[in-house]
Nucleic acid binder design. Structure first.
Length: 913
RNA sequence: GCCGAAGUGGUGAAAUUGGUAGACACGCCAGCUUGAGGGGCUGGUGGCGCAAGCCGUGUGGGUUCGAGUCCCACCUUCGGCACCA
């Protein structure tokens, strides 16, 4: 064994061994329990970043650990290879997205391999390969047949200069990123997937995912956004149905006939979202409310700018038309809407209150969303904070209809004033007042009574609605999976027959920013109608890349299947036992994958309901931010590698300078590693300098996996120091020869203590990795053991045998985390079989036995002494020994002992007066 | 604004079930080692105090023999987002 630890050699050797023996090939074996460990696949952006390294190291540790536990493990890897960056790169460099993508994949694959991940590379694929995306198309056609996929118009960002559709991220302050032109909103036909049909199940099944982080489940539940309330209508005064120009809808009447008990999400999702018209059938203004108990307090209604009633009113009111235009111009991003000033304008139209018959004015409000509910709300300013402020601003009446008695709870109504908003105004705990026959009813009773009365009048009923909207998958982009539709002038939109799949994407296009290049590809666009044989035009839109990532985990089970999307091997491997990825995917990717799984299940392609049994969301990787901001001009960020930090003599930071010019830079705190803040660390540089094991060790040691991880060059050096020390100690031990097998059950005291520590450490590491997933504490425990081992200065036979066992267990305990050095140490310790095929060691319970325990003694809760007591000592004896301790006796002397609390094996607390 | 998570030495953190606060590591200090390369080894390192000891886990209360951990109120930071009717 070399005296010196040289990671390049150690790591190359280990990786060559694993390659040669195809150690990571996963083979289905019904006799063995499987373990499918999956990390979210990367977008091939060019090179790995630290977030990838962290993600894949966590997955690899669990994979290798479970493998040592005897499970038949699968850890695959692939590439989320379609997407916008490839088109941007093409525009910048003139390289086709296909070439750019495949080059990046080749480079990043080498990087992943150099980190020594236990990946079955034989299952690798990229989503841009026709063998994969063929099945996107195939499933899309099945969805079309089942009515899950459908076509309707949607709004997109239109750049009038480049004549192209832009993604949200390509719109900066309302202008195109390349042209600077003001972006217009355009309505174009698009394909949608009816995820809302699964809303109820997607919500309910969150309860079947107990091993997902609570906060992810909460985020998904909020995103699905189930609301139980009442949908009802106001008659629009003096407006006939024909005047509104809304065509009779085939869905008309469906809402009323559905009954409140079992509302179908499918029907609901159609209603109110299908576009203009439906909300005004028969001259009715439909609204949805969760506070029907406040209906007697309605003093106005507010509709969205896009609402047909607003459109109608604007025809004869230029000022209103201008206001509506202003509202429509604003951002569609809901986060932006949260901060805009609330504005409104009266339409001049009145509606009739369904219960009181009073006339109610209708306003247009910029805070009403067309996409949620009916695009119209009843406004109860006394009991809704937004309505309250709106009413104050425009001097609209405010009528209290809910009373609350605080304090005693009997009768005494707390005073209501319109001076300022009070928290309790929105409370559901009060009872109705000023509400005629509903007076005195609580929330639930009032809602029931009011819903029943509305139903009797044929003007409404209870209703469940979801915030979740159908998934629009059409993208007016080149580098994606073609949507398999043919547009025929005679037959309309015709699905591509299964036998003609895949619709292959030409790979030699170079986008130039002026729209989808597919439109100009005659050989792609021109085709023959499968129905009538006439000339037809192929759809040029491609699919959202979230489609690609919605089922890739299932494809890994049978990546070579040419006949089917997935084959019977999926039954063995799925569902994924452990999924690992960034918290940024908590909603969309995970929700779409869950939806896609349920669709595949309903098509009897798979048997599972949920694709990911256990989820681990790893924290972000942070680093310091340094910058200079000149008097005039732009802020410049400096990479922490180019900055030297100045410390005072206590190690407290006093400043930082740029290494190149020695002049000070300012600290911007710490933040996520990003290009814009120039605070990234290149994993490749780290691997080149210290090796993969050091990178893996540092990343797993610095923080628990779910927490953020702060980068530290000193910490990396420390991790490397530990490995060098381990290597050196092991080399010294092995250099003296492999000790003969020795009976370790009878050892002198210091050796027995050391051996107990060895097995205590094994016990802790097993629990930390297997159950707690706190890799940082597992590593700390091994470090502690190594420190104890280094202190043992004893060259005797028994000592060498104890030391040998300790090194063996250290090599195995560290094998999931730093597999290369463990591989080398294991062979050096005299084993013929490689560490990769070794089993996780078992704790020797006999080694854990001890005769005496150290017990802490407190007096009035303050630590006053420690005593050694026999393990089997009865409580009286422990108490006696505790009181006999010199320091304890001193603190107890002269005081009456009131109580003595004995916690077996832990402590004694003596309570004195 | 709403929702969620978290506040512990100079720093990253540990304390798993209410039971020794600060394991492990970084940094710093002292000493040794002419093998300066990102050296190696030993010891020290929460604050105050000569000491006994006292104080100490964001702040203020509370429960308990005992609280970083449980309860109430507040402050701060981070993350997510919805004006969701």
């Amino acid at each position: 064994m070399d005296e010196r630890y040289s990671p390049e050699k150690v790591e190359t050797d280990a990786q060559e061994y694993w390659d040669r023996h195809r150690s990571f090939k996963a083979v289905e074996d019904p006799k063995r329990e499987k373990y499918y460990c999956l990390s979210m696949f990367p977008y091939p952006s060019g090179k790995l970043h630290m977030g990838h390294v962290r993600n894949y190291t966590i997955g690899d540790v669990l994979t290798r650990f479970m493998r040592m536990q005897g499970r038949n493990v699968l850890q695959p890897m692939g590439w989320d290879a379609f997407g916008l960056p490839a088109e941007n790169a093409a525009m910048a460099n003139g390289v086709p997205p296909a070439k750019w993508t495949y080059d990046n994949i080749a480079y990043m694959k080498r990087q992943l391999q150099s980190l020594g991940f236990a990946i079955d590379w034989e299952r690798e694929f990229a989503t841009c390969q026709p063998e994969y995306y063929k099945w996107n198309q195939w499933l899309f056609l099945r969805m079309l047949e089942k009515g899950i996929a459908y076509k309707k118009t949607g709004v997109v960002n239109w750049d009038p200069v480049d004549q192209t559709v832009l993604a949200n991220e390509q719109v900066i302050d309302g202008r195109g990123w390349r042209t600077g032109a003001l972006i217009e909103k355009r309505e174009i036909p698009m394909y949608y997937l009816r995820i809302t049909q699964y809303a109820e199940e997607l919500l309910a099944d969150l309860d079947r995912l107990p091993e997902w982080p609570e906060r992810v489940r909460t985020m998904q539940a909020n995103w699905i956004g189930k609301s139980v309330g009442v949908r009802f209508a106001f008659r629009v005064n003096g407006v006939a149905r024909s005047a509104l120009g809304s065509p009779p809808s085939p869905l008309e009447g469906e809402g009323m006939g559905m009954g409140g008990d079992d509302p179908s999400p499918l029907a609901l999702s159609r209603k109110g979202r299908g576009g203009v018209g439906e909300s005004l059938q028969d001259g009715l203004l439909w609204v949805f409310t969760t506070r029907a108990d406040t209906i007697m307090g309605v003093t106005f209604c507010a509709v969205a700018a896009e609402h047909p009633l607003a459109t109608h009113a604007a025809k004869s009111n230029p000022k209103l038309a201008a206001f509506i235009e202003e509202c429509k111009r604003g951002s569609v991003m809901e986060a932006d809407l949260a901060t805009i000033e609330k504005k409104g304008m009266p339409t001049g139209i009145y509606v009739t209150h369904p219960l009181t018959g009073e006339p109610i004015p209708v306003w247009v409000g910029n805070y009403v969303l067309m996409a949620y509910g009916e695009g119209a709300v009843m406004a109860v300013p006394a009991h809704d904070e937004r309505d309250f402020h709106f009413a104050k601003q425009y001097r609209l009446p405010i009528k209290q209809v809910i009373g609350v008695s605080l304090g005693g709870g009997r009768g005494g109504n707390v005073a209501f004033t319109t001076d300022a908003w009070q928290e309790w105004y929105a409370s559901k705990d009060g009872v109705c007042v000023n509400s005629g026959k509903y007076d005195g009813l609580g929330y639930a009773a009032a809602v029931d009574a009011i819903a029943a009365d509305l139903k009797a009048k044929g003007l409404g009923d209870k209703q469940v609605i979801f915030r979740l909207r159908d998934w629009g998958i059409s993208r007016q982009r080149y580098w994606g999976c073609p949507i398999p539709i043919i547009h025929c002038p005679h037959c309309g939109d015709v699905p591509v027959p299964d036998k003609d799949l895949p619709v292959a994407l030409p790979e030699d296009c170079v986008p130039d920013g002026t729209g989808n290049p597919l439109i100009k590809r005659a050989d792609f666009v021109n085709c023959v109608c499968p129905k009538c044989g006439g000339k037809a035009r192929r759809e040029t839109d491609t699919m959202d890349t979230f489609v690609d990532s919605s089922w890739y985990y299932a494809r890994y089970c049978s990546p070579d299947s040419g006949k089917a999307m997935v084959d019977e091997r999926v039954k063995y491997w799925m569902p994924v036992d452990q999924y690992i990825g960034g918290i940024e995917h908590a909603i969309l990717h995970l929700l779409y994958s869950r939806f896609w799984s349920k669709v595949m299940r309903d098509l009897r392609l798979v048997a599972y309901d949920e694709p990911f049994t256990r989820l681990l969301t790893q924290g972000m990787v942070l680093n310091e931010i340094f910058f200079r901001k000149p008097e005039s001009g732009r802020i410049t960020y400096y990479n922490p590698a180019d900055v030297e930090v100045k410390l005072d003599d206590k190690g407290q930071r006093i400043g930082a300078i740029l290494k190149s010019d020695g002049r000070p830079v300012e600290s911007g705190g710490i933040g996520t590693m990003s290009k814009s803040k120039n605070n990234g660390v290149d994993p490749q540089a780290l691997i080149d300098q210290y090796g993969a094991d050091t990178a893996r060790l540092f990343i797993m040691f610095a923080a628990p996996p779910e927490d953020t991880l702060e980068w530290s060059d000193e910490g990396v050096a420390g991790a490397n120091r530990f490995l060098r020390r381990l290597w050196k100690l092991a080399a010294e031990h092995v250099g003296a020869g492999i000790p003969a097998k020795t009976d370790l059950s009878q050892l002198p005291s210091p050796l027995r203590d050391l051996r107990r520590l060895v097995h205590q450490t094994l016990s802790k590491v097993t629990d930390d990795i297997g159950r707690r997933r706190t890799f940082n504490t597992a590593i700390a425990a091994v470090m502690e053991l190594m420190n104890a081992l280094a202190r043992l200065d004893d060259g005797s036979g028994p000592a060498r045998a104890v030391r040998h066992e300790a090194f063996e267990l250290i090599a195995l305990m560290l094998a999931p985390i730093v597999p290369h050095i463990s591989h080398a140490l294991w062979f050096a310790l005299g084993h013929k079989e490689a560490a990769i095929d070794a089993r996780w060691p078992a704790v020797d319970n006999a080694a854990l036995k001890q005769e005496n325990l150290e017990i802490v003694v407190q007096v009035n809760g303050k630590l006053r002494g420690r005593v050694s007591v026999p393990v089997q000592a009865p409580e009286d004896k422990v108490r006696e020994l505790a009181l006999a301790d010199e320091n304890v006796a001193r603190h107890v002397a002269g005081k009456a002992v009131r109580k003595v609390i004995v916690v077996p094996g832990k402590l004694v607390n003596i309570v004195v007066a």
